[in-house]
Amino acid sequence: MNSKKNYILHLADNGLILAQRLGEWCGHGPVLEQDIALTNIALDVLGQARYFYQYAAEVDGQGKEEDFYAYFRDEREFKNFLLIEQPNGDWAHTIMRQFFYDNFMQLVYTSLLSSSDKQIAAIASKAIKEVNYHLKFSSEWVIRMGDGTDESHKRIQDAANNLWEYTGEFFVPTTYETEMASKGIAPNIASLKNDWHTRGNEIFSEATLQVPQATWFQSGGKTGTHTEYLGIMLTDLQYLQRAYPGNSW
């Protein structure tokens, strides 16, 4: 049961923390249309997170609600990818983070469509439509920046180089992922690696970008060992619930 709860929380935390980062762009985008588009993505991934938290609450069976898992767990209990909590940086870093994530999650949600867990499959069938759009959006922007001006090319290449080390974690299963894969609830994530690289290479090639060659990858996000950024994000996110506990909002 714990593995299942952990796996669902891992999916939920990714959505929440990414929404939290994308929300920082709201009102600050490079042009109004893109400001709105990014908020759209934030809303989608937040919506996905809420479905998963609600399901985690059900699986947990403690009578808690979605907000408990978002607002009353500590840093070491969050299971999101390290990639997701990295700061927005410039538009290039935000888009590259999004592209790495979307490319992976599109594969994850595609396999979750046939999860042996009906509820996860149902959430995936809603999420896949959103993620398909997110992937299209972030791929197009990677290409636009890579094949745009000298400056945009340099910036998006830098973003790829800087964020690359946080992508290895995608493909190294935790014990909860291994257990979920053995039950047909989750995909065997190591098997998604080739597709992720193939599609990534295609987009990078169209964008005239170099695929980073570094082979050392950071890990730990999925088991709660984060970069220093997450703790600060949570103090902000959880502040009201923690300062005035026990209230309705």
Binding site: P30, V31, D90, W91, R144, G148, T149, E151, S152
Partner: peptide, 13 residues
């Protein structure tokens, strides 16, 4: 101002 290079990239592309 921070978005200037982004808009320029979109136009150039």
């Amino acid at each position: 101002d921070n978005g200037k290079w982004v808009r320029e990239a979109a136009t150039a592309y």
